[in-house]
């Protein structure tokens, strides 16, 4: 990841608690295609028709607790990434979604999203773990990643991590 990738700016699309991966990408599509761009077009379609059309590249998904619960489908973070969402912010993430996002290099941030409203302009510095709600004039605290996970994020995901031939030895102390 380059330094510029750590600085993100965009608009918040606010969702509720317990957004499951069936909602993020329906089984109707995930079983049919591996085409990321087609998957992206159906992002959150069942609960928010036309969501994809409302995104400007770089925007953020902002959710409550337990984002990404349910099925293990990696197509969920993949659809978000290819819809060109800059990052997902939530009060907490379901564990498989959390893994998948890290492995794919999709930035995820644990923060108190109750302080963000739909449509707020956010500025994020991933390297510093800083979220600024420009609309509300607030700086939000984020939960830092453990160093082992930071290594995967910095490599740009698990595929890049393995491609560099480093295997697990470095990560596994």
């Amino acid at each position: 990841m380059h330094l510029k990738d750590y600085l993100l700016q965009g608009k918040a699309h606010k969702l509720g608690d317990d957004i499951n991966t069936d909602y993020i990408i329906s089984g109707r599509y995930k079983f049919k295609t591996l085409d990321r761009n087609i998957l992206a077009q159906h992002l959150l379609e069942d609960i928010l028709p036309n969501f994809y059309q409302q995104i400007t590249p770089g925007d953020f998904i902002v959710a409550g607790e337990n984002f990404g619960c349910g099925s293990s489908r990696e197509q969920a973070p993949l659809a978000i990434k290819y819809a060109r969402i800059g990052a997902v912010l939530a009060r907490s993430f379901a564990r498989i979604f959390y893994r998948n996002a890290i492995n794919l290099g999709l930035p995820i941030i644990v923060t108190d999203t109750r302080k963000i409203k739909n449509g707020d302009e956010l500025k994020i510095d991933l390297s510093q773990g800083k979220v600024i709600n420009a609309t509300a004039g607030l700086s939000l605290k984020t939960e830092p990643f453990p160093p082992e996970i930071m290594q995967i994020i910095e490599a740009g995901g698990l595929i890049e991590y393995f491609k560099k031939g480093r295997g697990w030895t470095e990560l596994g102390r």
């Binding site: 293990s72 990696e74 498989i96 893994r99 998948n100 996970i149 995901g157 698990l158 697990w168």
Partner: peptide, 16 residues
């Protein structure tokens, strides 16, 4: 786990 996790297991027999 996810699909890329599975790929890592295929590549190494291990996982984080």
């Amino acid at each position: 786990v996810g699909s890329t996790d599975l790929a890592a297991v295929m590549a190494s027999g291990k996982l984080w």
